[in-house]
Amino acid sequence: MPRTVTESEIAPTRYAHHIRARALTVRRGRRVAVDGIELDLGTGVHGLLGPNGAGKTTLIRTLATVLTPHSGELELLGSARRSRVDLRELRRRLGYLPQEFGHYRRFTVREFVEYMAWLKEVPRRRTADAVQHAIDRVDLTGRADDRMGSLSGGMLRRAGIAQAIVNDPDILLLDEPTVGLDPAQRMEFRALLRDLGERSCVLVSTHLVEDVGAACAGVVLMDEGRTVFTGHVDRLRTAGTDADPGDSDIERGYSALLRRHRERRTGAGA
């Protein structure tokens, strides 16, 4: 059973880089899913883009300490140590929403978020307020006492976001968080991301390029396990031309960078 920690033990700390990776490699069986990538991510909202199979989910799970790197260096919140005590302390400071998250159908939304707060060792005297605040921020206030099994797909996703932010994390990792959200909810979610990025390092994996353009300052673009591009979203907007596929500047930039990367790898652009 997790012990109750004091507020001073989970007070936020400023880091030059919340996430720092050097030649990070992660294998899934015989396949290299993340292939020697470099990352330096600090406070703010960062979009993680790439086609299916690019390695985005593997990278997110590695940063969430679910998977162990095969080689390279990974520092989270200034520490590369991975003892059991280190991991426990680190996980108190992480928020993570996987593509598919488990939950007890008979739990109410409030009970589910309370349970996750307990697992993350949120101080007991702060738990009720932290849970209510997280539920309010994802616009589930009126459904807080409904059972998880009665929620729509979009509401379940919002409950998942609530559990990810209940501990006010220093690093927030979200894997396809807008799946099932309607357009109005997506706009509200973008505003929430911008607010969270004021003090946290937020990494959002998504297929929706326009969400990145609206909510993110930084972009990490992956393909075949490698980093294609890292930088400000404005650089992504200017990377393409009218000849590249896409309905917007940012989509054309995405297409252009992927094309150039693949040409370099195959020698087609030589």
Score class of each variant (00 low, 15 high):
W118L: 11
A159I: 09
A144S: 09
R125M: 05
L151F: 03
L196I: 08
R157Q: 13
V113L: 03
V122L: 07
T206V: 05
F112S: 08
D136N: 05
E111K: 08
L173C: 08
A164V: 12
V179C: 09
R194S: 08
D182Y: 00
T178D: 01
L174V: 03
A164W: 04
A117L: 02
E111T: 07
D175H: 04
L156T: 04
V138K: 12
D145P: 14
A162S: 05
L203H: 10
G180C: 01
M148T: 02
E188F: 07
T108F: 11
S200R: 13
F107M: 11
V179G: 10
W118M: 08
V109G: 00
V109Q: 00
L193S: 06
R158D: 02
V204S: 02
P169F: 05
R147A: 10
G153N: 11
T127P: 04
R186K: 15
D145V: 12
V113F: 00
M148Y: 14
H133S: 13
F107Q: 06
I171H: 04
E114Y: 00
G154R: 07
F112N: 12
R147I: 11
A134P: 06
D136T: 14
D129N: 05
L193R: 06
L119N: 13
A191M: 12
L203T: 09
P183C: 10
R126D: 12
S152E: 03
D129E: 11
H133W: 15
F107T: 06
V202P: 07
D175L: 02
V166R: 01
G153A: 13
E121C: 15
T141V: 10
V202E: 07
D195V: 13
D139R: 08
M187Y: 11
L151I: 01
R199E: 13
R194Y: 02
M116P: 01
A128T: 12
T108R: 06
L172C: 10
G180D: 00
S205D: 09
A130F: 14
L172D: 12
N167C: 14
L156G: 08
P183H: 13
D129M: 00
M148N: 06
F112Y: 15
I165N: 08
V138S: 08
R125G: 06
G180T: 01
R199C: 03
D170R: 13
K120V: 14
S152Y: 08
Q132S: 15
K120E: 06
I171A: 02
L172Y: 09
G160V: 01
A130K: 07
F107A: 03
